[in-house]
């Protein structure tokens, strides 16, 4: 099991994460990322990793 960490002070609300994994990420009413589910099972790790890597301001991390 891996865990998503989001840094809202870095997030610019660009939404690449949501475009690729909308069951894990959504841009909220404050215009910043909300993590809908922080824990990522092994089966989803690949595409969540891709969504995290696609963040142009490096606001997301996958730990574990």
């Amino acid at each position: 099991m891996s865990v998503i960490q989001a840094d809202k002070t870095v997030c610019e609300g660009i939404g690449m994460c949501e475009a690729q994994a909308d069951n894990y990420f959504q841009i909220g009413d404050d215009g910043l990322v909300d993590v809908l589910a922080a824990e990522v099972p092994e089966s989803d790790r690949g595409y969540v990793r891709a969504a995290i890597d696609s963040c142009p301001v490096s606001a997301l991390r996958l730990e574990g």
Binding site: E12, G15, A19, D22, G28, D30, G31
Partner: peptide
């Protein structure tokens, strides 16, 4: 400086 409505529209268009 209006990211929330933009995010909603982007979601709808997608």
């Amino acid at each position: 400086d209006s990211p929330a409505p933009i995010a909603r529209l982007r979601r709808a268009l997608a």
